[in-house]
C-alpha cells in the first residue's frame, strides 16, 4: 500500500464511521483526526486495524498548559510514509483514555509511559505499573506536565538518600 492510498482509505474510514470529527492535513503525508467523542475512539482504531493501517508507531502526550486545562493524547499510526494521527482531548484533572492493549498488544509500554509521564489514567490497562520512573516516585507528580519544575524531586530525594542494605529485587 502506498502513501496516498493509505491516506485515502483512512480519510474515507473517518468520514464514514465517525461524524463528529474534524480532519486536517498539516503536511502532505499526514492526516490529523480530532476526535471530539471518546466513544468513537475504539471503533476507529479497530477500523484502522481491519484496513491494515494499524501499525501504532507511538503515543504522544501533550500538555496544553494549566490555563487551557486540557491534555492532548496523540496516537500515530504509520503506513508507508503516511502518518494518521488520532487526537484525543482529556481534562487536566482526572484524565482518562481507554486502553488499546486488547487490539494492539504493542501499545502496552506506550500507555504505561503516558500514564506515568502525564498522569493520564489508562482504563483497563493489563499492567498499570511504572515503566521508566522509580517505584518510589512521588504520587501525583508527572514530570512531563508543564507545571512540573526541574530539580524539585531530585534534590528532595538526594537529601534523603539512605541505603538500608535490604535486598530488593526491584
Amino acid at each position: 500500500m502506498n502513501t496516498q492510498e493509505a491516506l485515502k482509505i483512512a480519510s474515507l474510514l473517518v468520514e464514514e464511521w465517525v461524524w463528529t470529527t474534524e480532519t486536517e492535513r498539516p503536511e502532505p503525508n499526514r492526516l490529523d483526526v480530532k476526535l471530539t467523542k471518546l466513544d468513537d475512539f475504539i471503533p476507529i482504531v479497530v477500523g484502522l486495524r481491519v484496513q491494515r493501517l494499524g501499525y501504532l508507531s507511538a503515543i504522544t502526550g501533550l500538555d496544553l498548559g494549566p490555563e487551557v486545562g486540557e491534555l492532548e493524547v496523540l496516537y500515530h499510526f504509520c503506513t508507508a510514509a503516511a502518518v494518521v494521527t488520532l487526537r484525543l482531548r482529556v481534562p487536566r484533572d482526572n484524565p482518562s483514555v481507554p486502553s488499546l492493549c486488547s487490539i494492539i498488544p504493542s501499545a502496552e509500554p506506550f500507555e504505561r509511559e503516558l500514564r506515568e509521564m502525564f498522569g493520564v489514567d489508562v482504563d483497563k490497562h493489563p499492567n498499570p505499573i511504572h515503566i521508566y520512573l522509580p517505584d518510589d516516585w512521588p504520587v501525583d507528580t508527572y514530570p512531563l506536565r508543564k507545571d512540573f519544575e526541574q530539580g524539585t524531586v531530585s534534590t528532595a530525594v538526594r537529601r534523603g538518600v539512605k541505603h538500608d542494605g535490604k535486598e530488593n529485587n526491584g
Partner: peptide, 18 residues
C-alpha cells in the same frame, strides 16, 4: 515474563523543553 524499564531514564524529554 514481565519487563520493567527505566534504569537509564534521564528525563531527556523534559530537559529539551528548557
Amino acid at each position: 515474563a514481565v519487563v520493567r524499564l527505566g534504569y537509564a531514564h534521564r528525563g531527556i524529554e523534559k530537559a529539551v523543553e528548557g
